[in-house]
Computed example of a mutant assay.
Amino acid sequence: MKTIILNQPGEFQLISREFDDNLLDNEALIKIHKIGICGTDYHAYRGKQPFFSYPRVLGHELGAEVIALGRAVDTNELSIGDKVSVEPYLNCGKCQACLNSKQNCCENIKVMGVHTDGGMTEYVKIPAHKLHRSKVLGYEQLALVETLGIGAHAVQRASVSQNDIVLVIGAGPIGLSVIQFVKLHGAKIVVMDFNVQRLDFAKQLFDTDVSVLAKEGFTADDLKATLNGVLPTVVFDATGNPQSMMKAFSYLAFGGKLVFVGLFQGDVTFFDPDFHRKEMTLFASRNSLPADFKMIIKNMEEGKIQTQAWLTHEAAFEELPDVFESWLDPSSRVIKAMVTV
């Protein structure tokens, strides 16, 4: 079985290895067709991904085909030949978070491609309930569902409404996924990034309301002037940059909500009197839930979510070790790269 393994930062290797296709009663065997490349993969390649060890098989944005099913799998829910999106969050089902329907932040979670081997390979065994099928969507679209789930869950956490003014900081793939679902909720969308091309892409794709170029020295007063005397009621920081995340507190209106979608290895600090004076609400947002996958697939099937513009780069499976590093170059203008197995 062909597999690409990241032996250490900066070192991919294409290998062939044995595969045991014997299934547990609740498992499915899937053939991987499409793999989306995300920030986690880039961070792992650079040696900057938290909660990570080497060697590791990356890949958790997957469009796949069901090849075989364990004896206990309900064939009314899943059938051989189904095209599926993979929910890559392998939760224990027994901890307090899981018992409270918060599987996305399970105390013992193992995310495919991060804590355990992922989908940069030909075949994978996985609990059948982690597969979400569609009779309409193609493998490429199904491989985008997990990325979209990050934004969907973050927007759900903040209970965004059409009355909100929403600032999204960072117009990379995760920020774009947030923008997608803010748009579906009808809120006013302000996008901030240091990259003009990304701001233009967000405007073209989602018809965002205001674009803000994040120049050095830009302040909350500058933002307030840009927004005609008001500040955002909800701020999403999708950068994973500590300076950006800590500065985001200053951009928030009184009574507003701040959601950290990205993360970094370090401490976040803020000035407590301002935090209390504004009665801010601070959220973390991690992964997504099964209901998010189902909602996204339904919206994609109904044409409410367009995905083709996201796909800017592609490669065959065998080419990935040679082209991956080029996607790290900002001049390549990658939004979403997709690999075909």
Results as ranks from 00 to 15, higher is better:
residue 2 K to R: 12
residue 6 L to H: 07
residue 9 P to C: 03
residue 10 G to E: 11
residue 11 E to G: 01
residue 13 Q to A: 14
residue 16 S to H: 15
residue 20 D to T: 01
residue 21 D to F: 13
residue 25 D to Q: 10
residue 27 E to Q: 13
residue 29 L to Q: 06
residue 30 I to L: 07
residue 37 I to N: 05
residue 38 C to A: 07
residue 41 D to V: 06
residue 42 Y to L: 13
residue 54 Y to C: 04
residue 57 V to A: 00
residue 58 L to V: 04
residue 58 L to W: 05
residue 66 V to S: 04
residue 66 V to G: 03
residue 74 D to C: 05
residue 76 N to D: 09
residue 76 N to V: 03
residue 77 E to R: 12
residue 78 L to W: 00
residue 78 L to K: 02
residue 83 K to Q: 09
residue 85 S to Y: 08
residue 85 S to M: 03
residue 86 V to W: 11
residue 87 E to L: 09
residue 89 Y to I: 09
residue 100 N to M: 05
residue 111 V to K: 03
residue 113 G to D: 08
residue 120 M to W: 14
residue 125 K to M: 09
residue 128 A to W: 08
residue 129 H to F: 15
residue 131 L to H: 05
residue 139 Y to I: 02
residue 141 Q to S: 15
residue 143 A to C: 10
residue 146 E to I: 07
residue 148 L to D: 00
residue 154 A to V: 06
residue 157 R to S: 03
residue 162 Q to F: 14
residue 162 Q to V: 07
residue 163 N to F: 13
residue 163 N to Q: 07
residue 164 D to W: 06
residue 167 L to M: 10
residue 171 A to S: 11
residue 179 I to T: 01
residue 180 Q to I: 04
residue 196 V to T: 08
residue 197 Q to E: 14
residue 199 L to R: 03
residue 203 K to I: 10
residue 204 Q to G: 09
residue 205 L to I: 15
residue 208 T to I: 13
residue 208 T to A: 04
residue 209 D to R: 00
residue 211 S to Y: 04
residue 213 L to Y: 15
residue 214 A to Q: 13
residue 214 A to C: 12
residue 217 G to D: 12
residue 226 T to C: 12
residue 227 L to G: 04
residue 236 F to L: 00
residue 237 D to M: 02
residue 240 G to D: 04
residue 241 N to P: 07
residue 245 M to C: 05
residue 247 K to T: 13
residue 253 A to M: 10
residue 255 G to W: 01
residue 257 K to A: 09
residue 258 L to V: 06
residue 260 F to H: 11
residue 261 V to F: 02
residue 262 G to S: 06
residue 262 G to E: 05
residue 269 T to E: 09
residue 276 H to Q: 10
residue 277 R to Q: 12
residue 284 A to F: 13
residue 292 D to A: 03
residue 292 D to H: 14
residue 309 A to F: 09
residue 315 A to L: 11
residue 317 F to G: 03
residue 317 F to A: 05
residue 319 E to R: 05
residue 322 D to V: 11
residue 323 V to F: 10
residue 329 D to E: 06
residue 341 V to C: 14
